[in-house]
Design a protein around this nucleic acid. Sequence first.
DNA 1: GTCTATAACTTGATAGAC
DNA 2: GTCTATCAAGTTATAGAC
Lengths: 214, 214
Amino acid sequence: MSDQLTSREGTRERIVEAARELFFEQGYNATGMSQILNRAEANSGSLYHFFQTKEDLLVAVLEKYKLMLCPMVIEPAKQRASDPVDRLFAILMGYRMLLEATEFRLGCPIGNLALELSNSHPRARQLIEENFEGWVGEVRAIVDEVSDRLPEGMDAECVATLLLSAMEGGVMLARTYRSLEPFDRTVHAVRLMFDQLVRGGSEWSAPLTATSTP
Amino acid sequence: MSDQLTSREGTRERIVEAARELFFEQGYNATGMSQILNRAEANSGSLYHFFQTKEDLLVAVLEKYKLMLCPMVIEPAKQRASDPVDRLFAILMGYRMLLEATEFRLGCPIGNLALELSNSHPRARQLIEENFEGWVGEVRAIVDEVSDRLPEGMDAECVATLLLSAMEGGVMLARTYRSLEPFDRTVHAVRLMFDQLVRGGSEWSAPLTATSTP
DNA sequence: GTCTATAACTTGATAGAC
DNA sequence: GTCTATCAAGTTATAGAC
């Protein structure tokens, strides 16, 4: 760290951040390099000094998202709730808050790029996969805390994957409908099923097997 | 019908179909008009005779998808299963089959366009909403057949919305991972929760209230 | 590392003959 | 309704001075 006296890295970071915001708001193909340069207040020469192609810049954005997962998504949710199950839904509520605050313009930046680029940009696809994998890993770690209460045939990986799918789908519907209702309906359905699944929630810790009464 | 002797409508339909395929495979912004003309084997003059702008063509594609929902998605699934709950999951399996057949290149054409265009193309956003609304309506009608077995606090609209969100999220993950595993995990989790929710499936029709034993 | 100017190409869309 | 030719603007990327 601090290995070189040269370059405060200010310009590079400004460019990555501008690209990140614009890709988030408009998508990758709809965002032009000139637009990125405007927002970053940088010049073409600077951009292509750091990144050889537009796709290289996209890669840098997706690397940044991997670093942002915990400080921006996971930790804030953990601070808002202490019970494991509540923490899972606090993560989902983070996306709900963003949808509301931006009037449905912003949802999940990764999901945004996933469908647009998975067929055409292999390096981006790989990094998007790693971003999803990070999300599922963090969420699975929380689910693991209550995994003794999961019924047979259901493991923490399954639950975490469902939470990610439901979140991404719910965000997609909310942005399309410009309403929180489909997102809320999705989360409500998951929560209700979830409560039946990890029967009893945090108060009880009695492990459950196939057929049992509350 | 057959109101005019002129124009067999062949060209217009070829253009719409070519655009539909390319938007599905590549997205809207990544598809150029010239590419559409190539695939449709038509000329620029013909295209702009039928559609004033690229967005007008997109609108025609989304109108076509509304007509395709039942014959291409709902009815085939209904033919593959007779029990209502099985029919719901047969619809999801339709998307799984498409993912598999296209090696994860094609998932849901509407979800594809939803995230790309919801911020920037109001007319498209409205039509995408109508497509989702059609899907949820068809699925809700199936859920209604077992709605007497849903627990308190859960209605058919909620269940149908969860199924759409889970499908869209599952498709997104499968296309990103280039694997059916995340899709299957998602569906498996929903199915397990579902079976607990509409306890017993089609054999039993005993309505359930809050706390009860299997 | 940053600047300006611009190359090389593609884009969505149009004009006008047929 | 179809054709060819083409426009103006925008695209990603580069060149070369500073």
